[in-house]
Each structure stands twice: as C-alpha cells, then as structure tokens.
Computed example of a mutant assay.
Amino acid sequence: MPLPSFPIKTRRLVLRRYAADDLDALHRAQSREDVTRYLYWGPRSRVEVEQALTERTGLTELRAEGDRLVLAVELVETGDLLGEVHLFWVSKEHRTVEIGYIFHPDFEGHGYATEAAAQFMRVAFDDLHMHRVIARLDADNTASARLLERLGMRKEAHFVQNEFVRGRWADEAVYAMLASEWPSAQLAEPFVRGLPGDA
C-alpha cells in the first residue's frame, strides 16, 4: 500500500512514528480511566504501556488486509505527545479502512484530534485511494461522535448492546464516508478551529 512519507506535518501538528522515548508520555495518557473509558482495555500499568509502545513502533505499514497503521501526534509548538491516530485495513476487495484515535484530555478544546484525524482521512482517500472509511465507537462516546461529524462522516448504524465490554453491555455506533463524499467534506475551518469537546 503506497503510504505517504512520514512524518506528516500540519500547521500545528506532526504525525510521526512512535519512538522508545514516548514511554512516559504514553503512560501518562493510557493509565487514566478518562482516556480508556470507551476502549476495550482499561487503564494500563507502566509495563503494559511499554508492551503497547513496542507494538506501536512496528505498526507503520499497510501491506495486507488486517494490518494497522498507528502514528503518534505531537504538538509542533511544544513537542508534547497529544495522542495517536489509527488506520485499520478492513477489506482489500471493498477498499475499506477504519479510522480511530486516542487523545489525552488535557489537550481538549483546540481541535487537535479533528486536525489529526482529517490527515488520516486524506491519506485514506487521496493516497491509498480507498472507497470507504468507517469508524466504530461506543455509542455513549458523544465527544467522539461529534468529531466524526465534524469530519463530514455520517452515522450509518446503531447496534444495541452488541458487545460486552469491561463488565457492561455497550451499544456501538458506526460512522462512514465514501470517497465521492470526501472532496465536499474538506472544509478548512473545522479542521483547525478548537470546538467544545474536541481534543
């Protein structure tokens, strides 16, 4: 899969490969309940984060269906690690990828997550020539849903109590966008403007 060269830079952000010296910052985020609340896994110990970081340093290519690309998101101005963005290759035949993201709540309100996710939408459609980008999330995660809507994605499904996650039955929402819809969604202002609830 012909990925662009890394890092990917915007006016405010750098999307780059993870490095070993990201451990402290990654642990500060992944050890928090408010960061992992809607994820399949809960707050992680430092050992668990170290294992996760080792895995992430290898997730830099999309060679086959089922592969995952994960990049760290760094603030240009300070060098702070804000979070990460994901692309998961769902289907080669149907040219579909899934987008995901995890951001530290201390950096909310500046539009960073939207700006970073928009770059991965661009990669999916403009560089990888995907037909469809989807996102799956806990339906209770309204902040994430608003981010996807700012990207121009539409809600296509709501599955009621379809997964048992960390001791509770969770609803799942599915959002999507087609390649034919991507050009009309490229509105510059939402990708750089800080909005309430946006990381």
Score class of each variant (00 low, 15 high):
152 G>E: 09
136 R>G: 02
148 L>K: 04
182 W>A: 07
171 D>I: 03
140 D>K: 08
192 V>K: 15
156 E>S: 10
160 V>Y: 12
185 A>I: 02
86 H>F: 14
138 D>L: 02
131 H>L: 13
109 G>Y: 13
146 R>V: 11
103 F>Q: 00
135 A>Q: 03
115 E>N: 10
146 R>Q: 12
149 E>W: 06
189 E>D: 15
93 E>I: 09
150 R>L: 00
181 E>Q: 12
97 V>R: 04
90 V>Q: 07
88 F>A: 12
141 N>E: 01
134 I>S: 05
188 A>L: 14
117 A>G: 07
156 E>Q: 02
142 T>C: 04
161 Q>L: 10
156 E>G: 09
181 E>M: 08
157 A>S: 12
115 E>W: 03
128 L>I: 05
109 G>A: 14
92 K>M: 09
93 E>P: 08
164 F>D: 08
140 D>Q: 11
88 F>M: 10
133 V>K: 03
186 Q>K: 15
135 A>P: 00
97 V>P: 01
94 H>I: 08
166 R>S: 12
84 E>L: 08
87 L>D: 00
169 W>H: 15
123 V>S: 03
136 R>F: 05
118 A>I: 07
122 R>D: 13
121 M>T: 01
87 L>W: 00
150 R>A: 08
102 I>Q: 05
117 A>L: 02
119 Q>N: 09
152 G>Y: 01
134 I>M: 10
98 E>P: 09
124 A>M: 11
178 L>T: 15
158 H>G: 06
123 V>R: 02
123 V>I: 15
162 N>A: 09
89 W>R: 01
150 R>P: 05
92 K>H: 11
125 F>N: 10
163 E>L: 12
133 V>S: 07
109 G>K: 12
164 F>Q: 06
155 K>V: 04
133 V>Q: 05
92 K>N: 11
95 R>T: 08
94 H>G: 08
190 P>M: 11
99 I>V: 15
133 V>D: 00
181 E>S: 07
106 D>P: 12
175 Y>P: 01
110 H>A: 15
142 T>E: 09
100 G>N: 07
126 D>T: 06
163 E>R: 14
116 A>Y: 06
104 H>L: 09
119 Q>P: 07
131 H>D: 13
174 V>S: 11
147 L>Q: 00
185 A>W: 04
172 E>Y: 00
141 N>V: 02
94 H>P: 00
105 P>I: 11
142 T>Q: 04
133 V>P: 01
150 R>E: 00
108 E>Y: 05
108 E>S: 15
144 S>L: 12
106 D>F: 11
175 Y>W: 06
122 R>P: 00
149 E>A: 14
144 S>V: 02
162 N>C: 14
111 G>R: 01
90 V>S: 04
127 D>Q: 08
142 T>Y: 02
147 L>M: 11
145 A>M: 05
139 A>P: 03
173 A>F: 06
165 V>Q: 01
185 A>S: 14
189 E>M: 01
123 V>K: 01
87 L>T: 05
169 W>D: 11
128 L>E: 07
133 V>W: 05
149 E>N: 05
176 A>Q: 07
125 F>P: 00
180 S>D: 15
103 F>T: 02
101 Y>L: 12
179 A>Y: 08
